[in-house]
Nucleic acid binder design. Structure first.
Lengths: 356, 356
DNA sequence: TTGAAAGCGCTAACAG
DNA sequence: CTGTTAGCGCTTTCAA
């Protein structure tokens, strides 16, 4: 594989000149530029990323830091990763995957290697040790999600409040007045609090209050089993409920299954919808789930763009929140006896919401 | 951040000596070694990966090449990626994600950058252009999946024949004699033939023949919708069928839904099971799917290990096939009238099968 | 057992 | 506009 030196020799110029055309960093006479480009083509020259990285002190590699655990955001995570990788590629960056624990130790070690120019943190907790590590090692980073303290942060996140509102509006539009909320939950291995879970409950209560709906909140873990349990609790605690919003995509199918087993029809007796699950999963449920989709690919793409923006130093990327989009399935329907027609259209995608 | 030079100065040795202890590449007096280690600790030294890569001509980075398209193996892909990343990390390698098309062009460009030491190819086609590119650029690589021609290849793959056998055995054990097969299928954008799809049909036919079962093969694409269509075709083509094996995890829920809509109960009238879908997806179906699981994490982990084995040059990793494991759900049951009790145990995991 | 020194292939002053 | 040159931080002969 040809090196710059060989290209330079072939084109009869100095190695610096080759570098200049390559990086477009100095004006070059069209003639010489042409000679050089010719030589590069002839020799099949490809610039060596590693050497470039060492000399320029920028590797053009960014890391996607994802949770080490298997259990979170299973189907959505894939979209995150692929979306991020593609966005990175388009900006001529590489994406490495760093599965690390929530304490920032492993992260610190990795950062010490000076391999990456910046980091994209996914699955951010309200108080996240990794953020401290990043600050301390003073590595550029962006978040997918956001911590409690937002000062000086570059983040892209789901607008959970708006997403819940969409869900509630949908159900209210179908005549429902007894809407319960099953929140995802997690409190283990130093997982202080996953943002969407933490925020969503308050948002639900607020919305319920505004609409004079008596709030009913249950919790579930990230499993089908847990959804079944929630169904039991729901029927015990608030049997008059006609609609449920489930904050966890894994639990939703379990909830439906158990409701059915106990003789409730979905959506006949009770409507069920999930919050921020992927369309894939929603489509696989039976009945198919109505959901406010998680804009997975978009989030990670925006995250990568924000980070690269930071690295390439133009402007410091505005933090932004993205809202999910209502995807209608067969798991929600008009409240019994309302006589309302089945709603069956797909809402238009919302545009990014710039955030002060 | 301290460099080796500073460590050397602090320890009163030459930079070479520091390198020797770091890489354990030459014998060093315990005393000096200690001094050096002390200095490294004091200065918080971390070896710069980029410099190391340039000097040693090994970056300790490997690439996972995944299909550019969104639509294949959705839920399983995540496991692949995370599994690969973790395996890489354990071997002190980094994993970059390269989403590239099936023609090898983008891949060739990426390889030219000399960033990675080797490549792990997933989602391998029977005749795969990317393999040619890799050979030609003479980059070490391993496959997850396998091409038609296996000469000189390092691969890890699903033992599709064995997996189908497990499925058929399960159904036969429940008394079924009319077992149809719905194969996943794909023939677009140069996707010559996804191994498991191509191989599975023949395997099914062979097994059916052995058991004197009349083979019924249908096809579906990777969507819920497509599964519904397949259900219609099935009832039209072979209404006497009592059990179906579906080769695509996305289609299975659709198939069940449509069978149900047409008045068939699952598993009462007809048992349905899927081949090589992830447990996650299987659990989310309603009824939960019986499936022969795809050993996603394992495959990618083995793939990474095989590749690194190749790179670190010890032995050239034996190709191996992994068999899925039967995971019982509620979508399969005894054939109507057989009076057989419902089978409800989980088979033991099979060990890796070395392959000549 | 240790050190000196020549690179790895490229970038980026600085000089002309 | 182009060339010279000094590194980037580490590995790795070769010699001591």
């Amino acid at each position: 594989m040809a090196t710059m030196r060989e290209v330079a020799r072939a084109a009869g110029v100095s190695i610096a000149t080759v570098s200049f055309v390559l990086n477009d960093t100095k004006p070059i006479t069209p003639a010489t530029r042409l000679r050089i480009e010719q030589a590069m083509a002839d020799l099949g020259f490809r610039r060596n990323m590693v050497a470039r990285a060492l000399a320029s002190r920028r590797s053009r590699i960014i890391a996607l830091v994802c949770p080490f655990s298997e259990d979170r955001m299973a189907p959505t995570a894939r979209e995150f990763i692929i979306g991020a990788a593609r966005a990175a590629k388009e900006a001529d960056y590489h994406l490495v995957i760093w599965p690390v624990g929530n304490d920032g130790d492993a992260l610190a070690t990795l950062l010490g290697q000076k391999l990456v120019d910046g980091v994209l943190l996914m699955d951010v907790q309200m108080d996240d040790a990794r953020v401290d590590v990043l600050r301390q090692m003073d590595t550029p980073f962006a978040l997918i999600g956001r911590t409690r303290d937002l000062s000086g942060l570059h983040y892209i996140d789901i607008d959970i409040a708006a997403s819940i509102r969409i869900a509630m509006d949908h159900l209210a539009g179908l005549g429902h007045r007894k809407i319960a909320f099953v929140n995802g939950w997690q409190e283990h291995e130093g997982v202080a609090g996953f943002g969407p879970y933490v925020r969503s409950e308050g948002d639900y209560r607020k919305l319920a209050e505004d609409r004079e709906i008596k709030p009913v909140v249950l919790h579930c873990r990230r499993s089908v089993r847990s959804g079944r349990d929630a169904a039991g609790e729901l029927l015990a605690a608030a049997p008059e409920t006609t609609a449920v919003v489930v904050g966890d995509e894994a639990a939703a199918p379990g909830l439906i299954a158990e409701l059915t087993r106990r003789g409730r029809t979905v959506p006949g007796d009770i409507s069920v919808m999930s919050l921020l699950s992927s369309v894939d999963v929603a489509a696989m449920c039976n009945p198919t789930l109505t959901t406010v989709t998680a804009p997975g690919t978009e989030l990670s793409r925006l995250g990568v763009e924000a980070l690269i923006c930071l690295l390439d130093g133009s402007r410091p990327a505005t933090p932004m929140l993205r809202t999910g989009v209502l995807a209608l399935g067969e798991s929600t329907g008009p409240v019994r006896g309302s006589g309302k027609p089945r709603q069956r259209r797909r809402l238009p995608s919302t545009a990014p919401t710039p955030r002060g």
